[in-house]
């Protein structure tokens, strides 16, 4: 880890020509995600006579990951929303040259004094703050849906599908992930995909920014109940805003609680807050389509992670964990949605 810290210091000295004596004081790898190796880095340097200390986050491409994503997509999303009412960390450097740290990476400022672990929401002080955190969570998602893709600059970096193709593009993509990575035949996922293709949703009223993985666990909240930053934009794209809403509502993120998506507010309240912030009315039939899609997408991600682990391309335990527990739950959720019976599974 010390060697990596030294190499990061060398890189930062290159990017900060005004700084001298650049040194990494602490470096720590952060668990989870697995789409990037994520490090918390404390740096000090001199700027003239002044001593400066900064806390940074470095996200490096892994040798293998849950999902293949483009670091530039994530970096540009941070750049697009930084300074807006959608809180994100300040992005600093995007580096595609592998000579610095063997693989491409990007650097952003750390948001200190905040946590993202969903389990903490059931403990003090956060358990008393669910209303506040929940209200912000759904309003922020509505604000992302409302953002003008041209004004914030993402129309230049993200492909814009035709409105009527939003669903097909996503379904094609995730079906191919299952085609490529399944270790065993997947009758539940296949039945869901056929159902989705037979009953496509109406096109959205307009193209929105879709975060791609907006859920409890992917934003930082503090002890006053304030959401400080929305993270993990690596699957960001332009599309139907109901895709994000359905993903955030998926039962997995509050399992086994079905009443409060993401362990925060009741579903109807979440929808009302989203509608208010986005300025859009939720088409319940279309949302139902996107909710089935969300579980298919989830399964695709878990299938892919199980494949990575089984093929020994990446033996990080998080990949085995992801390939086992959430895959099991998404199978159950899909059966329940596609062939419901009176009692939930």
């Amino acid at each position: 880890m010390r060697e990596l810290g030294d190499r990061i210091a060398t890189y930062l000295a290159h990017r900060w020509p005004h700084a001298t004596e650049v040194a990494v004081e602490e470096i720590e790898r952060i668990f989870g995600g697995a789409s990037r190796e994520t490090y918390r880095v404390a740096v000090r340097y001199r700027e003239g006579e002044a001593r400066v200390q900064r806390r940074l986050i470095l996200r490096r491409d892994p040798t293998s990951s849950l999902i293949e994503t483009d670091r530039a997509t994530e970096f540009h999303a941070y750049a697009a929303f930084h300074g807006s009412s959608v809180p994100v960390p300040r992005p600093l450097f995007l580096e595609n040259d592998g000579r610095w740290l063997d693989r491409p990476f990007f650097v952003m400022e750390e948001v200190v004094g905040a946590v993202s672990t969903p389990k903490l929401l059931s403990e003090p002080p956060y358990v008393e703050l669910l209303e506040s955190i929940g209200e912000q969570k759904w309003r922020i998602l509505g604000t992302i849906a409302r953002a003008d893709v041209s004004t914030i600059g993402l129309a230049k970096t993200l492909e814009a599908p035709a409105l009527e193709d939003c669903w097909r593009r996503e379904l094609d993509f995730w079906e191919k992930v299952i085609d490529d990575d399944e270790l065993t035949p997947q009758p539940i996922a296949r039945a869901a995909i056929r159902r989705l293709r037979r009953n496509p949703p109406p096109p959205p009223p307009r193209l929105s920014v879709v975060h791609g993985d907006y859920r409890t666990g992917n934003f930082l909240f503090d002890g006053t109940g304030r959401i400080r930053a929305v993270l993990d934009w690596e699957m960001c794209h332009l599309g139907d805003p109901l895709e994000d809403l359905a993903w955030a509502l998926d039962p997995l993120w509050s399992w086994p609680d079905r009443e409060r998506p993401g362990k925060l507010l009741p579903r109807q309240r979440a929808l009302a807050l989203w509608e208010d912030a986005s300025g859009m009315t939720v088409d319940r039939r279309a949302l139902g389509w996107w909710e089935i899609f969300a579980s298919v997408k989830g399964l695709a991600i878990w299938i892919s992670s199980g494949r990575e682990f089984a093929d020994e391309r990446n033996q990080d335990p998080i990949l085995a964990l992801a390939g086992w527990f959430p895959a099991d739950i998404h199978d159950r959720v899909l059966v329940e949605r596609l062939a419901p019976e009176e009692e939930p599974l």
């Binding site: 389990k119 199978d331 159950r332």
Partner: peptide, 20 residues
Amino acid sequence: AIWDELRASARRRAISFYPF
């Protein structure tokens, strides 16, 4: 019958705890 079996299969394979 297929859906009944898929439902039963999801139940059979369910792990009794969730670590997240």
